[in-house]
Structure formats: structure tokens, C-alpha cells
């Protein structure tokens, strides 16, 4: 295993040691994929290779990255949340409706929507042990119905969000760093700290890896699970408010297109859908890859049909590649 013998082994040895390195650092490989995609986009759209190109990519990626954060936490526990986009839309609606009363109230009410819906999901999954796929799917359907009805009644007022929310979603700090990216950064730091350095993070991984073991060790699994769904609701609400801020107004299709990408970003980033393995740093790169891919396909101007096909193929290829890399080790 000495470095000397590696040199002697020559080319095949180099390939193998690269493979081993890649298997141990899958995130670096993902980052490289991102860079390649970014350069490819720049080659097609020369203006893209610039500060504003980077800024745009980050701006696009922020809401997706936050929705994918919700998905990552739940996937680590062995769950999933198909209602993230409806929670986001609902929170945005409430925030818009409350906007005449000031941005602070609007944001708080929006987050409250996320917390409430997340709690209901959590109660269903953690206490009544409903399969998360079904629970959140049903929740999504409930929310869609409720908010469609409410837009004509209790939420009939404002569909415009407060100026501060618009600034948060679309504005930039000192004209260069988008506020939404700062929010995303804050979410990322907190979440990575929680997952890596807190007892809660340990428990999230533990219940996802082996729920019975966690239970026997005295972990109150339902509390951990409930808290994860609550957090997921709040994160989705944050993403919804940012999205509303970016577009300035809300509608029922606000976040719909982000559902599958939010799962895909976490998966590409190496979080196992069965729980216990992964982390948020991978998801961040996953979200960046997907948003730069979006830009690339938009610049290519190939039409929606080809876009969807390429998008699907690349998600599959990346997930496959990741699985191949990490399985070898």
C-alpha cells in the first residue's frame, strides 16, 4: 500500500487509485460535475461565465436548495415529504395575504403555516405510523383543495407580497449577493451544524438507520420524527416565501415544479432514500447541478420535450454514477 508500489503499478494503478479517491470523496466528484456543467453552459452562452452568471445560478438554486433541505432531513430519517411544494405555496399565499399588515407579520404567519402543516404530517407519520409517501401525498391533495377554495374566500385579499419579502426573494445585498442566497446560506449552516454537531442530528441518522435499535436504546422515535416533519414544514415555508418574493405575487402553481427536483437534488447529493446515510452538503451541490442544468437547457432553447428528456437522463446518470462510486468502496 506504500506510495512506491503505487508508482510501480503504473497506469492501471493510477486509474484504480483515482477510483478509490473518488469513492472516498464523492462530493468532490459532484462538485466537478457542477463545474463541467457550468463551463458547458458558459460555452453556449458566453455571458454566463461571469459574476452575474454565478449569481443567477445561486439565485435559481436557493429555493430549490431549501426545499431539498427539507427533503434531505426527512430522507435521512427514512421518510419523504411530497407536500413540500404545496406547503411552500400555501405559506406564500398566507404571507401575501398578511402583507398589508407588514412584512414581519406576513413572514411569521407564512412560517406558522409550514409549522402547522408539518406538525400534522408528523403526527400522521410518527404517531399513527402512516407511510410518509401516502401521508404527505394526501396532505398535498388536501392543501391544494383548501387553498384553491380559500383563494376565493378567506385568502381573497392581496396576492402581492410586501416590499421587504420582494427584496428578500429577488434583491441583492450591496447589489451583488442575493438576499435569498444569504438566507439559504444561513439555513445551510444551521442545518449542517444540527446534523453533524447536535444530539438531534445523531438521532435523525439513528432512526433512519435502524429504528428498532434506536427505540431499544431509549430514543423516543416519535419525537424525533415529529420534529423532523415540523422542520421540513418550516423549511418549505421559507422556500415558498422566497419564491413569492422573487415573483412578487403568488399563484397556485408557484412551487409545483420543484417537487421532483427537490427529491432529485437530495438523491444526487448522496442521501439515501432509505435513511441513515447522506448529508446536506451533498444536497447543496445537487441543487446547484440541477439549477445550472436548467439554465443550460434554457439557453439551448431545445423545447420543453427535449428539456424533460435530458433532465431525466442526467438525474438518472448522476444517481447511477453516485451509486456505482460509493458501492465499490
Amino acid at each position: 500500500m506504500s506510495s512506491e508500489s503505487r508508482v510501480v503499478q503504473g497506469r492501471a494503478g493510477n486509474a484504480r487509485s483515482f477510483q478509490r479517491w473518488a469513492a472516498e470523496n464523492p462530493l468532490a466528484v459532484l462538485a466537478a460535475v457542477f463545474v463541467v456543467l457550468f463551463l458547458a453552459t458558459s460555452a453556449i452562452q458566453p455571458g454566463f461565465f461571469s459574476v452575474s452568471g454565478v449569481r443567477n445560478t445561486l439565485l435559481q438554486a436557493a429555493p430549490l436548495g431549501i426545499l431539498a433541505a427539507a427533503q434531505t432531513v426527512l430522507m435521512l430519517t427514512g421518510g419523504i415529504d411530497l407536500s413540500v411544494t404545496m406547503i411552500a405555496t400555501g405559506a406564500a399565499y398566507v404571507a401575501a395575504n398578511q402583507s398589508p399588515g407588514g412584512a414581519a407579520i406576513a413572514i411569521l404567519m407564512g412560517l406558522l403555516v409550514g409549522l402547522i402543516v408539518g406538525s400534522v404530517n408528523g403526527v400522521g407519520v410518527a404517531i399513527f405510523r402512516v407511510n410518509p409517501l401516502i401521508m404527505t401525498l394526501a396532505m398535498s391533495s388536501i392543501l391544494l383543495g383548501l387553498f384553491t377554495a380559500w383563494t376565493q374566500t378567506v385568502l381573497a385579499g392581496s396576492t402581492q407580497v410586501a416590499p421587504f419579502i420582494r427584496l428578500l426573494g429577488g434583491g441583492s445585498w450591496m447589489g451583488s449577493v442575493p438576499y435569498s442566497v444569504l438566507v439559504w446560506g444561513g439555513v445551510a449552516i444551521v442545518l449542517i451544524w444540527l446534523l453533524r454537531r447536535s444530539g438531534w442530528g445523531r438521532l435523525i441518522y439513528a432512526i433512519g438507520d435502524n429504528e428498532t435499535a434506536a427505540r431499544l436504546a431509549g430514543v423516543r422515535v416519535w419525537q424525533v420524527r415529529l420534529s423532523a416533519y415540523m422542520l421540513s414544514g418550516v423549511l418549505s415555508a421559507i422556500a415558498g416565501i422566497l419564491l413569492a418574493g422573487r415573483t412578487g405575487a403568488v399563484d397556485l402553481q408557484l412551487a409545483g415544479a420543484f417537487l421532483l427536483p427537490s427529491v432529485a437534488a437530495a438523491v444526487i447529493g448522496g442521501t439515501s432514500i432509505f435513511g441513515g446515510v447522506g448529508g446536506y452538503s451533498g444536497t447543496i451541490i445537487g441543487a446547484l447541478i440541477l439549477s445550472v442544468l436548467n439554465s443550460l437547457l434554457t439557453f439551448l432553447n431545445v423545447g420543453q420535450a427535449i428539456q424533460q428528456m435530458v433532465y431525466g437522463s442526467i438525474v438518472l446518470a448522476l444517481a447511477w454514477g453516485y451509486a456505482g462510486l460509493t458501492r465499490r468502496s
Binding site: 447536535s198 438531534w200 438521532l203 436504546a217 430514543v219 423516543r220
Partner: peptide
């Protein structure tokens, strides 16, 4: 049934330390 197969020895050993809500954040 008592092990977290994908977690480290360290995390497996330390698991019962976090059973209290007050231990969640540190």
C-alpha cells in the same frame, strides 16, 4: 436489531446519551 449498521462505532456507542430533549441541541 440493536446496531446502527451505517453509523460509526462512536455514534453507536454514544446513542443513549441523547435521549433527553434537553440534549438535542448540544
Amino acid at each position: 436489531i440493536a446496531l446502527l449498521p451505517n453509523q460509526s462505532v462512536h455514534h453507536n456507542l454514544a446513542l443513549p446519551l441523547f435521549n433527553h430533549l434537553r440534549r438535542w441541541l448540544r
